[in-house]
């Protein structure tokens, strides 16, 4: 419990530091008045707008006002949509989370069996193909891979739609495009595109984990006890290779949300990533700042969750870092 509180305090401190850095960065770069104001405005109008926005106050005061507003959930209005920036981000978040979730599922469901197979039969042609594929999966630039997926599966073969998010279905109160056929068709290509890099990572981890664990005594003991091979692999082996994979999945969920920027832009997936790219291009600062703070908070929460998950899977790891 002490550990959780300490981590939470650290997290709050980190969020504060990040908000300061972002604010300083934005502050250092230029004057939003230049964007907001009509170029033909008089000097008096200009001064009034500056005062109205609080831009004439000293830096630390501006930061404190900004911080106070942020703590009340007010990130200012988007210059482009003229709506609260936070609202814009939050309403696009489900689409991004859904995409990241689908990608994780693909990476884990395919990656663990393939990696374990490659680890159990290292010399076989199949496992060499798996490993070669995973090296390729690492190297292919994600955005180009997306274009290739569109070209082959949407334009040439016509199996999937080129872009967009399909119908959204509702299931037990959760609204997601994973619940309709049309939605699944739309999410397939972007999810695969987002998954491939992580699939390659999961394969590598599962393979090296399997190779390490399968030589250990408890596996030999399980064999000696006469346990069925499938039980050895599915229970004893799988459980012991899961830790690095869970870490990866947890850590990479944040990375997936960040990397979804690329996938979302190409597939016109209406998530947070597409919003941030559009906002950067349109110099929509409130949205950029809000996105950054939201993503920092997501990251901090994810890191905390991963640490907590560790101890559930492997009770030997004590949260306070003490050795047993």
């Amino acid at each position: 419990m002490v550990y959780v509180i300490r981590r939470l305090l650290q997290a709050v401190f980190l969020a504060l530091v990040m908000s300061f850095l972002v604010f300083t960065g934005i502050f250092a770069v230029g004057n939003p008045v230049d964007i907001l104001i009509d170029p033909e405005a008089t000097q008096a109008e200009r001064v009034r707008l500056i005062a109205q926005l609080g831009l004439d106050r000293p830096f630390h005061e501006q930061y404190l006002i900004f911080l106070g507003n942020v703590l009340q959930g007010d990130f200012g209005n988007s210059f482009v949509y003229n709506r609260p920036a936070l609202g814009l981000i939050l309403e696009r978040m489900p689409a991004t989370l859904e995409l990241a979730f689908a990608a994780i599922v693909i990476a884990v469901v395919l990656g663990i069996p393939l990696g374990m197979y490659a680890g159990l039969r290292p010399g076989s042609a199949g496992s060499q193909a798996v490993m070669a594929g995973s090296i390729l999966g690492f190297s292919v630039p994600n955005f180009w891979q997306a274009i290739m997926l569109i070209m082959i599966f949407a334009v040439m073969l016509g199996w999937f739609p080129v872009s967009g998010r399909g119908q959204v279905g509702e299931f037990f109160g959760v609204r997601s495009s994973l619940f309709t056929l049309n939605g699944l068709q739309h999410i397939a290509l972007p999810a695969i595109n987002l998954a491939i890099g992580h699939l390659a990572l999961v394969i590598r981890l599962a393979r090296s984990g399997t190779q390490e664990v399968k030589a250990q005594d408890f596996i030999r003991f399980a064999r000696a006890k006469g346990l069925h091979e499938s039980r050895i692999v599915l229970v004893h082996l799988l459980r012991n290779i899961l830790i690095p994979i869970v870490t990866l999945v947890g850590m990479s969920f944040g990375g997936l949300i960040a990397f979804a920027v690329v996938t979302e832009s190409i597939f016109a997936w209406p998530g947070m990533g597409k919003l941030i790219i559009d906002s950067i291009r349109q110099l929509d600062r409130p949205v950029v700042v809000a996105y950054l703070i939201v993503i920092v908070v997501i990251f901090i929460i994810l890191n905390l969750l991963v640490d907590l998950l560790y101890s559930l899977i492997d009770p030997r790891i004590r949260l306070d870092g003490a050795k047993q």
């Binding site: 980190l14 530091v17 972002v22 960065g25 934005i26 250092a28 770069v29 944040g254 990375g255 960040a258 990397f259 920027v261 690329v262 941030i276 790219i277 906002s279 950067i280 950029v288 950054l292 993503i295 920092v296 990251f299 890191n303």
Partner: peptide
């Protein structure tokens, strides 16, 4: 540590958003 806890693309995006 602080730096590496954020994905590279995000850090780069933010910097370029500012610069």
């Amino acid at each position: 540590d602080l730096h590496l806890s954020f994905p590279p693309i995000l850090v780069a995006l933010i910097l370029l958003a500012i610069l």
